[in-house]
């Protein structure tokens, strides 16, 4: 009996600090996001007034928000498609190909993933600078002056410049992940396929891809969540939504409203919408990619 009680005390003291901190800094702020979205608060008067779902109603009529939503969806879709294509391609090459420097490429490709977002923004600032940037001066040097652009200043291009930075940052991470699951595929499957006369490309589609499918499916959720978060940080540092809202994404709009303009209630309503949107999207993607799981 005594032993049981002392065990209970030990367990309590082990878990209590973690439980308190997570409650204080994760759960309470999360509940506050939802609660505050029902109030009109902040702004000039700094009064707190319950307004029900009014914040959400004004959101639907807010052109800036709708534009941010559109941009965010474009970013999520394009970043996911491009990253997945290159990550799988590189992973397949590096895990199947028998050539030197496999490790070298893996180490290099992973570098963007360890750098701070601020550093990456700085690097892309150097690349995109219209007069002295690496991209434009390179294009001029090889005689393609017509392709030079105001990469971050042109309303039509800025979104793609951001997308490129996001893809550049993400490829290595997912490639390493896919390489790990490809490494688990038994070698004799490839030997059997090769005896049947399959080419490398056929093997990729008939053996590799079906066997890593469940892993790819899991990463789809990662793509959605991490692209929403990273696009916010990139945009916040690189363009702050400009020019003219053409690179605005919804979390940055939330941050601007809540922290910048001090319209907390409205800002948190955006947060709630994004939160629900990301979960719904992840659930839908999960549902439509559901296949029979093949195992080896």
């Amino acid at each position: 009996m005594n032993r049981k009680r002392s065990q209970g005390r030990f367990v309590f003291f082990c878990i209590a600090p973690a439980a308190i901190l997570v409650t204080l800094f994760i759960f309470i702020p999360t509940i506050n996001v939802f609660r505050m979205s029902l109030y009109r608060m902040g702004g000039i008067t700094n009064k707190k007034e319950f307004v029900g779902l009014n914040n959400f109603k004004s959101l639907l009529a807010d052109k800036n928000f709708l534009q941010a939503m559109q941009n965010s969806i474009a970013i999520i879709v394009l970043v996911t498609l491009c990253t997945i294509f290159f990550a799988i391609l590189f992973a397949a090459i590096l895990s199947r190909g028998k050539f030197k420097g496999k490790n070298f490429f893996r180490i290099i490709f992973y570098i963007p993933n360890i750098l701070s977002i601020v550093v990456i923004a700085g690097i892309f600032g150097a690349i995109y600078n219209p007069s002295t940037g690496l991209l434009n001066t390179f294009l001029r040097a090889i005689g393609l002056d017509s392709l030079t652009h105001q990469w971050m200043g042109d309303q039509k291009i800025v979104l793609y410049s951001i997308i490129f930075a996001l893809v550049w940052q993400a490829i290595g991470y997912y490639m390493v992940m896919y390489m790990a699951s490809m490494a688990a595929i038994p070698q004799d499957l490839y030997e059997a396929a090769s005896l049947d006369g399959a080419t490398e490309i056929q093997m990729f589609f008939q053996v590799t891809l079906p066997l890593v499918w469940s892993n790819i499916r899991t990463t789809l959720t990662f793509y959605i969540i991490s692209t929403i978060n990273l696009s916010f940080l990139f945009v916040q540092i690189m363009s702050d939504g400009g020019p003219n809202g053409h690179s605005e994404v919804f979390l940055n709009y939330m941050y601007k409203q809540a922290y910048g303009a001090g319209v907390y209630g409205y800002g948190m309503a955006i947060g709630v919408v994004v939160f629900i949107f990301s979960f719904a999207l992840a659930a839908i993607v999960n549902k439509i990619t559901d296949r029979e799981v093949l195992e080896f």
């Binding site: 506050n32 947060g271 994004v274």
Partner: peptide, 23 residues
């Protein structure tokens, strides 16, 4: 408790940075 800590995995800091600041 296990479920509660797991739930924390789904909350990203970007959403709650302003409420933390306000708190």
């Amino acid at each position: 408790l296990n479920i509660a800590f797991m739930a924390g995995l789904f909350v990203n800091i970007n959403y709650i940075v302003v409420p933390i600041f306000l708190m």
